[in-house]
Amino acid sequence: MIEVDDLTKQYGDVTAVDAITFTVRPGIVTGFLGPNGAGKSTTMRTILGLDRPTSGTATVNGRAFRAAKAPLTELGAMLEAKAVDKGRSARNHLLAVGATIGVGRRRVDEMLDMVGLADVATKNAGGFSLGMSQRLGIATALIGNPGVVMLDEPVNGLDPDGILWIRNLLQQLAAEGRTVFVSSHLMSEMELTAEHLIVIGRGRILADISMEGFIAMSSQHRVVVESPDAQKLRDLLVGPDVSITSTEPSRLEIEGITAPHVGEVAAANGVVLHQLADIAPSLEEAFMELTADSVTFHGSVSAQGSAS
């Protein structure tokens, strides 16, 4: 369990994170979503104790991470794949990290096997590709069998196989009852991995909601219809709250009415339909909509703030 309470972090004049509060619960994958520079890494660095909060608190399993007795067994984190010494082999890197909780070569080799680096275990980490560094970072995070796992952009640099692997791994870890907190700016990836979402924009929490809830919250549901008589259907459906666009003569994209309603209107007027589909917005669209709003909202707030 990770609890962040009224956390603010300023670097000089810049407020990276602005009074955010949220809880990351065990048993599910929680996605931490936001554009670049939104405050994701700052939040994670503060949870990990790398940065001191300007105000507010961040706790892991109910206490500051600094106070953990065996830190790596409580929280395993990867913030940057390249946080290794280039002159040291992958195995020696893991041996050095593992030594802080008294685990040795057997555990290290187990982790190298798990992340698929056994063949390059004795090679210097400096020669690793981004994908291999990412795997080493994940092995470093998980070496202590931690109950809480926190990864910043873990799919960066991974090939499709690697992406599938990390997705399955994270879901498995969550299913075991662990707390899994993963950041990404790739909304399509989050959609496949996370069950719960925390969305951050400009240092503020924009949404703390289940994945379904997040998508449903978007207004961009639309209905796609294909009909040889599209023009007639268009005239029948047109109204003040309805917006209809058409990319091909036989195809309409409608916002503002539900699919059953379109079907009923078509049947009542004898219009033939070849296709009728309700299209839920992708997470990407929902995300863009939300963050676009937040930019406007944030701008007006800071304008008031500076006036007072």
Binding site: K69, A70, P71, L72, T73, N92, L95, A96, V97, A99, T100, I101, G102, V103, R107, E110, M114, L142, G144, N145, L169, Q172, L173, E176
Partner: peptide, 22 residues
């Protein structure tokens, strides 16, 4: 579990010393 079943021991000065020596 893909992470196995190890239980790490408390981090002490001796363990950090060992880590730095490695």
């Amino acid at each position: 579990s893909p992470l196995g079943s190890i239980e790490g021991r408390p981090t002490s000065l001796v363990r950090v010393l060992n880590s730095e020596w490695i």
